[in-house]
Design a protein around this nucleic acid. Structure first.
Length: 466
RNA sequence: UCCUCCAUAGCUCAAUGGUAGAGCGAUCGGCUGUUAACCGAUAGGUUCCAGGUUCGAGCCCUGGUGGAGGAGCCA
């Protein structure tokens, strides 16, 4: 008698008539005076639970089966058989039911068999994976993460684990979390009274990383095609449905490549990941389409099949000006595109995904390559209907003299970036890359409205419970 | 950080300044190869906290705390 998952039981992978064991948690139990109880048992292996039919003739029927309330853990052995009822093709005709862990107070068990608000479920983050929604999010997140690694692996990329703890100053990417073992109540001081970080664990100030990009560039200029995929931290006090203090970022970097190659990579990447999730998590996506966002499947299918348009920033500004649309912030050359601008471009003008390229140099980061016109940099944003900006990237400045000028212009201390400058001194090549926040991808895939539901344990200002 | 809205039973929400209610969930019973079943009954309340106004505050005022949406910043 083999132990099988609900997925194996329901998918036909195990032939009907087999003696099997299933184990999981009770979603609902319905008692029938016909002489049995119906237990909807979920184990997370797929969206649907497996129905266990427990006959009243079981010796522990009154003592255990009738106490298997919502949330209890159960092992059931029996025959996988065609269901006599409608609603499922197969079910377990149980010959033995073991109540492994009961719910000691059913009244206060938070996950009741009824709809809950996502806000409430955030307060019980340790139990919310037992719900339809968060089980499905977890499976989609896994499928997407696997697809990310598979895509890069198949394209010959090397996964580089850039450091979590970094001594690099924020290059304008945001506030950083300090990492220190100093005694906060008794800080060592220098003669001038400043905190003496030379006595800290690393002998200097250190922080949690805000990006692995600069580190991964070094590996790019050796291994040619590399990427990072790991946790990233921002200490910004931003309380929105789109920001987390701890999130996962994906940052590929390619050598001997320009911005056009970067945009091509971004397009292939998104299509690969979306196609994989469409193929692998059809059950979960169907649920999200019913529950969250009706277009969640159709918009993914459309994005996979539509070639991404490419327009210049300057062209985008002209399109916005000619649109006749009133924007809260008028589109002007030199200003960054607002959310309302991005949505107009992708949802109404292009009516599909679009890559906007070559932004004014003053509004972009110091490491982005200065174009020959001297006023724009080789930066790109990928915009998609229903979400707006999903990827940001650039060709990097590979010329040391230009990089030094840009660092000076942005007021960046060159001493902290000697190793980064070295990459331009020893065998520099044109290279490019992009970054995207993994949770924003999950929000889009699942049709969620708050990024706090796209990560198991969200960290935001004021909250690090669980 | 700024703006707006919100906070009442385990959950979702009602309640003109005058006796705090319903649905769902839970418990018990009934019924049924059931489908987040159905029918009946029962239990369940510091109305977020601290002040204030009033004969009387869930409701009005002040200050907190917490939540949501939007903005800015960004991924």
């Amino acid at each position: 008698m083999s132990i099988i998952s609900a997925k194996a039981a329901l998918s036909g992978a195990v032939p009907a008539g087999s003696e099997v064991t299933v184990q999981g948690w009770v979603r609902t139990r319905r008692d029938s005076k016909a002489g049995c109880s119906f237990i909807a048992l979920h184990d997370g292996s797929c969206f649907d639970p497996i129905q266990v039919v427990a006959p009243a003739t079981l010796p522990n029927y009154e003592s255990d089966v009738r106490r298997a309330t919502t949330g209890a853990s159960v092992i059931a052995r029996g025959v996988l058989a065609p269901s006599q009822g409608k609603g499922q093709a197969l079910e377990i005709q149980a010959t033995e039911v073991v109540l492994v862990g009961e719910v000691d107070d059913p009244e206060t068990y938070p996950i009741q068999p009824k709809p809950h608000t996502l806000e409430f479920l955030r307060e019980v983050a340790h139990l919310r994976p037992r719900t339809n929604t968060f089980g499905a999010v977890a499976r989609v997140r896994h499928a997407a993460a696997q697809a990310v690694h598979r895509f890069f692996h198949e394209e010959g990329f090397v996964w580089v684990n850039t450091p979590i703890i970094t001594a690099s100053d924020a290059e304008g990417a945001g506030q950083m979390f300090r990492v220190s073992t100093l005694d906060l109540a008794n800080l060592p001081r220098t003669e001038s009274g400043a905190v003496d970080f030379s006595r800290d664990f690393f002998g200097r100030e250190t922080f949690l990383t805000v990006s692995g990009q600069l580190n991964v560039e070094a590996y790019c200029l050796a291994l040619s095609r590399v990427y990072t995929f790991g946790p990233t931290f921002r200490a910004e006090n931003s309380n929105t449905s789109r920001h987390l203090a701890e999130f996962w970022m994906i940052e590929p970097e390619i050598a001997f490549a320009d911005l056009a190659a970067d945009a091509d990579l971004a397009e292939r990447f998104l299509k690969y990941v979306f196609r994989a999730v469409l193929n692998e998590r059809e059950d979960d996506l169907r649920f999200f389409a019913e529950r969250n966002e009706p277009t969640v499947v159709s918009r993914l299918e459309q994005l996979v099949e539509t070639p991404f348009a490419r327009i210049d920033y300057a062209e985008a500004i002209e399109i916005l000006k000619r649109s006749g649309r009133h924007f809260e912030f008028p589109a002007e050359w030199g200003a960054d595109l607002q959310t309302e601008h991005e949505r107009y471009l992708t949802e109404e003008h292009v009516k599909g995904p679009v890559v906007v390229m070559n932004y004014p140099e003053a509004i972009k980061a110091f490491y982005m390559r200065l174009n020959d016109d001297g006023r724009t940099v080789a930066a790109m944003d990928v915009l998609a209907p229903g979400i707006g900006e999903i990827i940001g990237g650039s060709q990097r400045e590979e010329r040391l003299d230009v990089l030094d000028r840009r660092m000076a212009q942005f007021g960046i201390e060159p001493d902290h970036y000697q190793w980064y400058r070295d990459l331009r001194r020893y065998g520099s090549v044109p290279h490019a890359g992009f970054g995207l926040g993994f949770e924003r991808l999950i929000v889009y895939l699942c049709g969620l409205s708050n990024i706090r539901d796209a990560i198991p344990y969200p960290r935001v200002p004021g909250h690090a419970e669980f």
